[in-house]
């Protein structure tokens, strides 16, 4: 563990260097303010939902619905991604269209299908400027870190941290299944955009994503509790995800060349799922709703 400026603790397995913009340094105050705002329902038009409505701390800041439901029951198009280790992110949203966390965190507030509140009004409701609102929320999201999992302990020398089947899963993950072609590094994502065929239905592309059906590789940390999966929440369980990739994704003209049929046995599929379970770690800042938060 490594303490960064006393504001947050970097858990085992993550890089010590946490990218933080020079104009929004991580401070305990900033993170605390961001936490309050994260749970603040005043940031939605009808004050019915907050960021946490779709990013539940109990589910590693994800939600169980396939796609998010915003104010007045409006349905979004995509599944709410888990907000894990986004401090290390290089692009945001499933389609990776936003380059900074400061920009990303306020977009759901103004999105008509989510919180549907113009940003100046949202900021005014909480007596902040739009910049302060964005910076505080970004600081809080930046502080949500997951590490020190059984996987991390295993990699750092605790040979008993993974069960035998999980170790088999790790070997498959890095070998035959070649999951590491995208899910790589401490955060188990290349932050890249890939077409796995997940947006193809009946030989039609139903979501362009970042273009040609490409979507950002999500981190697999905490994935055992972030169901459902894929950009549209179309796969209910990790076993379904493994099955999807075992079949080579969904064929389409722009399928990523690294997606191929894996020919895994049932035991191998089970081992992969078991291994993914070992990516659950200690979630920093996963605290419950602050007591003082406005309802």
């Amino acid at each position: 563990m490594f303490v960064l400026l006393a504001a947050i603790t970097i858990p085992l397995g993550l890089d010590l260097y946490l990218p933080v913009p020079e104009d929004n340094p991580l401070t305990a105050e900033g993170i605390a303010l961001g936490r309050k705002l994260f749970f603040d329902r005043r940031l939605s038009r009808d004050q019915s939902i907050s960021c946490s409505s779709c990013h539940d701390p109990e589910r590693a800041f994800s939600e169980p619905k396939t796609v998010s439901v915003g104010v007045f029951g409006r349905r979004g198009r995509r599944n709410a991604p888990a907000l894990i280790n986004r401090a290390y992110g290089r692009r945001f949203f499933w389609d990776g269209r936003i380059p900074t966390l400061e920009e990303q965190v306020v977009m759901p507030i103004s999105d008509p299908n989510e919180m549907d509140l113009p940003l100046p009004e949202a900021a005014s409701r909480v007596n902040l400027s739009v910049k302060e609102l964005s910076q505080a929320l970004a600081s809080f999201v930046r502080s949500i870190l997951s590490g020190d999992s059984a996987y991390d302990r295993f990699l750092n020398g605790d040979r008993g941290a993974l069960t035998a089947i999980q170790q088999t899963g790790l070997q498959l993950f890095r070998g035959k299944a070649n999951c590491v072609s995208c899910h790589v590094g401490p955060n188990l994502t290349d932050e890249g955009l890939h077409n796995t065929g997940s947006a193809w239905r009946d030989a039609k592309l139903d979501d362009e994503g970042a273009g040609d059906g490409k979507f950002k590789t999500p981190s697999l940390r905490e994935s055992a509790r972030t169901a459902p999966y894929m950009h549209d929440g179309s796969l209910a369980t990790l076993a379904d995800v493994v099955e999807f990739y075992d079949g080579g994704g969904r064929a389409n003209p722009d399928l990523d060349p690294d997606i191929r049929r894996l020919k895994l046995s049932q035991d191998e599929k089970r081992a992969l799922v078991e291994f993914l379970g070992a990516l659950a770690g200690k979630l920093s800042n996963a605290s419950q709703e602050p007591r003082a938060a406005s309802k």
Binding site: F2, L5, I10, D15, Y17, L18, V20
Partner: peptide, 9 residues
């Protein structure tokens, strides 16, 4: 240029 304490780059 990366700080050796990881605090900035």
């Amino acid at each position: 240029v990366l700080a050796v304490d990881g605090s900035r780059e």
